[in-house]
Design a protein around this nucleic acid. Structure first.
Lengths: 151, 151
DNA sequence: CCTTGACCTAAAGTTAGGTTTAGAAATTAC
DNA sequence: GTAATTTCTAAACCTAACTTTAGGTCAAGG
């Protein structure tokens, strides 16, 4: 025996570079689902290394954990994902990324226009276009203009 | 009299679309400095509308409040900023933006490579290049790989 | 003059994405 | 068989960027 009882959380952490606490947190967020050994400890599959790798990459691309969970749900549940499976969901990532780049480039164009006209004053400036404001991907619960203001 | 005693915080909020609480918060962060009327209430200049507009735009571009304060410090303190002054600091914003777009495009190239090879596995993948990881601009105090892991 | 609405401060709450801590149980190593 | 590691859970803490709340003051209208 002991040919393959699964990876412990510590080993998975070392293989991925993530903190043990982060891996537990991802589980709480539904991004990964280990099983438990008789003693109640988490055990992971080899494929989970790749899964967490994907999570880390997707984060760099600016996806939130719920968004990543959504993308990961595209993987087959009944078997270990193949390279083709990973390619498929990586394409989705690429689409997200393209959209973000596109948004930033439009923002840049608007800024160039504003630098040109020197306006930078609210109602006139293209930078206040609601479409652009809506998708600001900043951090935290920033009251994004367009949502209800105070009172 | 009453020709111009300055704007109240409520008026400034309406003109910019910001919440009153946000404007006070920005003051605490050193982004804006109103004076006080005899009763102790905040009074703002017309130019502060533009100042807050700039703050909002810079936030869309992903700058943090400290970074924005830094950029704003390039404005003249002794007089009302001219359109030229605004143009000058807007150029800095443009540089920030260019850099962010550049990073994302490099990330995209890496992803394309990875989709091609189907690896997506830690040590081989270009997406794990420390250079790219280092500058992840995500939100919050994320323990970015490369910093000391747990213990 | 008095009421209503705007404003004040300080402190606590919120979200995302985690980390840290505390105390206990399971594993591994010798 | 026991000591040293790991792991477990639950709860508290952290940052950024704000909002909400509580309790009180200021200003404007009638």
């Amino acid at each position: 025996m002991a040919v393959s009882e699964g990876l412990t959380i510590g080993v998975l952490a070392r293989r991925t570079g993530l903190a043990v606490s982060a891996i537990r947190y991802y589980e709480a967020q539904g991004l990964i689902s280990p099983w438990r050994n008789p003693g109640g400890q988490r055990r992971y599959q080899r494929a989970d290394i790749r899964r967490l790798s994907f999570v880390m990459i997707a984060q760099q691309f600016g996806l939130t954990l719920p968004e990543i969970r959504e993308v990961l749900s595209g993987l087959p549940g009944n078997r270990t994902p193949t390279p083709q499976d990973w390619k498929a969901i990586s394409m989705q990532l690429r689409a997200h990324l393209d959209q973000r780049i596109d948004t930033l480039m439009r923002l840049r164009d608007n800024l160039d226009g504003c630098i040109g006209c020197g306006c930078l004053s609210l109602p006139k400036c293209a930078l206040y276009n609601p479409d652009d404001r809506a998708k600001s991907h900043g951090s935290g619960p920033r009251y994004l203009m367009g949502d209800a203001p105070e009172a």
